[in-house]
Simulated assay, not measured.
Amino acid sequence: MTKKLRDYFPMLQTREAILKEINNNEKMWSTFYSWEEERQEEFLDFCTGARGVKVMYDFVSKEVLNPESTPERIDELLSLLLKQEVHVMEVLPNDGTRLADESSLVIMDIVV
């Protein structure tokens, strides 16, 4: 018997249950149906466990590794990468420029 993700994470709901909750809440309904159909499907797939979140998207990395809100995360990542314990002391201002207009590379200057 093949196990499903819901067997490991019972909090995952069915697609129907999620849509029912969305349709019963005016604010969620308004937000969900303002999205393109592709985004709606992606959201439902994530909520049901059919697909995972693409953690390499810039916005995910920025939130998860934000040194201003969760300095311990970036401390641990840098410590593991550098093979020595470090701590973020200061995040330097960013001028908002990118290396190239089409690039998604974002640089953060920090003092550790």
Rank of each mutant, 00 (worst) to 15 (best):
7 D>I: 06
9 F>A: 13
9 F>N: 13
10 P>C: 03
11 M>C: 04
11 M>Y: 07
11 M>L: 03
13 Q>Y: 10
14 T>E: 13
14 T>G: 13
16 E>R: 12
16 E>V: 02
18 I>S: 09
20 K>F: 12
21 E>T: 11
23 N>L: 13
24 N>Y: 02
25 N>Y: 07
25 N>V: 01
26 E>N: 13
27 K>P: 00
28 M>F: 07
28 M>C: 08
32 F>Y: 15
32 F>P: 05
32 F>V: 03
34 S>P: 03
35 W>C: 14
36 E>W: 06
37 E>A: 08
38 E>S: 15
38 E>G: 10
38 E>I: 13
39 R>V: 15
40 Q>H: 04
40 Q>N: 10
40 Q>K: 14
42 E>Y: 08
42 E>F: 00
44 L>S: 03
45 D>K: 14
45 D>M: 13
49 G>R: 09
49 G>A: 01
52 G>S: 06
53 V>L: 12
53 V>I: 14
53 V>N: 02
54 K>G: 01
55 V>H: 05
55 V>E: 09
56 M>F: 13
59 F>L: 01
61 S>Q: 15
62 K>L: 10
62 K>Q: 09
62 K>P: 03
63 E>I: 12
67 P>M: 01
67 P>G: 05
68 E>L: 11
69 S>D: 01
72 E>F: 05
73 R>I: 01
74 I>L: 05
76 E>G: 05
76 E>T: 02
76 E>K: 02
76 E>A: 04
77 L>T: 00
79 S>L: 00
79 S>E: 01
81 L>I: 14
82 L>Y: 09
84 Q>S: 10
86 V>T: 03
86 V>Y: 01
87 H>K: 15
88 V>N: 11
88 V>W: 08
89 M>H: 08
89 M>Q: 09
91 V>D: 00
93 P>T: 04
97 T>M: 06
98 R>V: 11
99 L>E: 14
100 A>F: 11
101 D>H: 06
101 D>Q: 08
102 E>V: 12
102 E>K: 15
103 S>K: 05
103 S>Q: 06
